[in-house]
């Protein structure tokens, strides 16, 4: 953000400011529900928070507009020394891998209720290891399999957590797997 053009730097505060204004009517599903309630009804606190967000976003926007040539806005200045990774355009940060990693992570969440915890976890761990430059086949197979089995025993058998089994046939397959493992 620090070295991006002015318009791009204005985007985040402008979106937050617009969001804080536009979100007000959606605090409750039907604003008429608030009719007749006192000033400190259910909408009071969210409105106050929207005001706070809007005012801070406006101040941020003004600060970005007033200092277009300083080589960075508030967000850039807020980066504490030594606590934040190198800049996104830094040579030692693999942005492509980060985006692929984020996609894998989001996919894992999406696939959990479809494939069930064991299979989704197995696939995710294997994919993540591959993404993390692990190419040894033994590791790519053993780590996901043993890891998933251990997690199933710990969380499903011992902690009795009702983790996602999957949809349709996958749900039945997960139950069969648990029966095979002695979990059910």
């Amino acid at each position: 953000m620090a070295h991006h053009p002015l318009l791009l730097r204005l985007l985040a505060p402008a979106l937050l400011l617009a969001g804080s204004v536009l979100a007000a009517p959606y605090i409750v599903q039907d604003p008429e529900m608030l009719a007749g309630l006192s000033g400190t009804g259910p909408g009071f606190w969210p409105k106050a928070m929207l005001w706070g967000t809007g005012v801070c976003a406006a101040l941020w926007l003004v600060a970005e507009v007033l200092r277009p040539r300083r080589g960075g806005g508030l967000a850039a200045e807020a980066v504490p020394e030594g606590t934040v990774p190198p800049a996104p355009d830094g040579s030692d940060y693999d942005m492509t891998r980060a985006i692929v990693g984020l996609v894998f992570t989001l996919l894992y969440g999406v696939l959990l209720p479809i494939l069930g915890f064991p299979l989704a976890t197995l696939l995710f761990v294997a994919a993540w290891l591959f993404l993390g430059r692990i190419r040894r086949l033994s590791l790519l197979v053993l780590v996901p399999v043993l890891g998933t089995l251990t997690l199933c025993y710990v969380f499903v058998l011992l902690a009795r957590m009702p983790l996602e089994r999957g949809a349709g046939a996958m749900g039945e397959a997960t139950v069969r797997l648990y029966q095979l493992l002695g979990i059910y």
């Binding site: 761990v125 780590v143 997690l151 902690a159 009702p162």
Partner: peptide
Amino acid sequence: VPPAVLGAFIIVLSVVGAYGVRNNI
């Protein structure tokens, strides 16, 4: 442990931890 192995299981544990709060996807 290689960071990739650790990272994979941290995400899985995070997902399990998040799920376990209310047993809710």
